[in-house]
Design a protein around this nucleic acid. Structure first.
Lengths: 259, 259
DNA sequence: TGGTATCTTAGGTCAGACCGTTTATGCGAC
DNA sequence: GTCGCATAAACGGTCTGACCTAAGATACCA
């Protein structure tokens, strides 16, 4: 090791300034490189990355490191790892699900108040309904109708009712054809489901009101009437929120894990 | 291996039906368990998880497996791993950053158009402004004023302008005192920043308009006028979106990597 | 021809070693 | 004492090489 002070004495110039150096981990470097290649389209969707042992040869890294890199990409939703022969890391593009899961973590981690959840839905969903009225396809309408049919079953358990409820709301978001909004609504709906399941918020009257509101909003979406859709959705989620909050007294929210 | 058909012939009952079995990976199991404990508050923020070798002893798993689990949690933003003595996996609660990065991946994966981003902001931000007008504290106002001051500097570089822009928008969200909306706006702002930096969307005129709009919205928030706040914010983000989209002609969005 | 046994390729897990970084600790000079 | 520095200890990071398990491919036999 050369002595730094010796260098200093040989020059009158101020010492070189160095920024606090970054020492990236090998697996991060590899993950980063692969991620860039995937996002740049060098690896197209559906094709498998080279096998781990092949990557070991190419990168001169150990298999441990290679595997950690692949694991990172898997968590980020950029590859899907399959086992067995002709398994491997298959490239996929991240979809709304990854957004939904990170939003779920955000919600669960912050111990968010139920009021915040409902507020957020009030912000987002009317806009979704408006977009849905403009962009919906026949397939979207079919999905909405299906959810309406499911939820109309008055004999269903609470869990089934809430599930159809979620399905309908997610279907509205999907009909907006905006991936981000769809991801957000998926996460929000799931969280609200969980929060309202624990309490006995939902009585027969709420069920009937909900079914009617969904029908009416679906009609507006089918008719391609954004203004009506926005207005009705606004009223629906607001009414729902008020009903819930009237019952709720500082309830702790517990969002179930997805998968 | 026993012959299945032999069993069948010895009984008249129909064979047992099994669902396609789930064979979770060991590292996923551990990651899942740790994640639940963190989110349930069993490990509070800031405390380190047991060292890897300790986890190996407790879980009877190999260090490879333990490390993969920790890596998963790190990517999900639930722990921050530090090296060196008294290093380890320190528990942290996920914040807007993890949502932001998954949104970024979604965008870079080209599943999302810039229009979707702007649309989502149009859905969320007016609502934030409304809440902010109702819930803002003096500290919130100070933060908004600070951002307004920064952005008014006409000599600033584009990067500085956009950063102050993001700061202001995030400050509005923070003033709403809704954790979810704040997290979402952080993510969206960063993504929009990145998407608009690459293009030369921002000219002097846009800058001046933006500064004026921010001032006017800040006034409404200070005055505690939700209606004015919502109206002005609506116009601001809508105008901005139109200006951007006018310039954009099927432009490929390239969001730079965070970190 | 159709099904079944086997082979082959891939990821999953394990054990043990060693390296690099960072902090605690103890010792010596002031 | 107390400040500074060398050293030790406690971490995560990486590597090697082995073996297990899943599952598609293939050959073989009825």
């Amino acid at each position: 090791m050369a002595d730094v002070r010796a260098q200093r004495s040989t020059t009158s110039q101020p010492p070189v300034r160095l920024t606090p150096m970054e020492v990236p981990k090998a697996s991060d470097v590899l993950a980063h490189d692969l991620r860039e290649r995937i996002l740049n389209g060098e690896f197209t969707e559906g094709v498998p990355l080279p096998p781990e042992r092949e990557l070991v040869i190419q990168t001169q890294m150990s298999r441990t490191t290679v595997r950690e890199a692949l694991r990172i990409l898997e968590v980020q939703g950029l590859v899907k790892i399959k086992t067995g022969r002709s398994g491997g890391a298959y490239v996929q593009r991240p979809d709304g699900a990854s957004v939904a899961s990170s939003v779920s973590l955000l919600i669960r981690g912050q111990q968010v108040r139920l009021a915040d959840l409902l507020e957020t839905r009030e912000a987002i969903e009317p806009f979704c309904a408006s977009l849905a009225a403009r962009n919906r396809t026949d397939a979207d309408l079919a999905r909405l109708d299906g959810a309406n049919k499911m939820i109309a079953d008055t004999d269903a358990t609470l869990a089934r009712f809430l599930q159809s409820n979620v399905d309908w709301h997610v279907a509205v978001a999907a009909a907006s054809h905006n991936e981000i909004l769809t991801g957000l609504m998926t996460a929000l709906s799931r969280a609200i489901y969980a929060a309202t399941e624990n309490e006995q918020f939902i009585d027969t009257e709420v069920r009937r009101t909900t079914v009617r509101a969904h029908r009416s909003i679906t009609d507006a979406i089918r008719a391609g009437d954004p203004d009506a859709a926005v207005r009705r959705m606004n009223r629906h989620v607001h009414t729902y929120a008020e009903a819930i909050l009237k019952v709720e007294q500082r309830t702790k929210i517990a969002v179930p894990e997805e998968n």
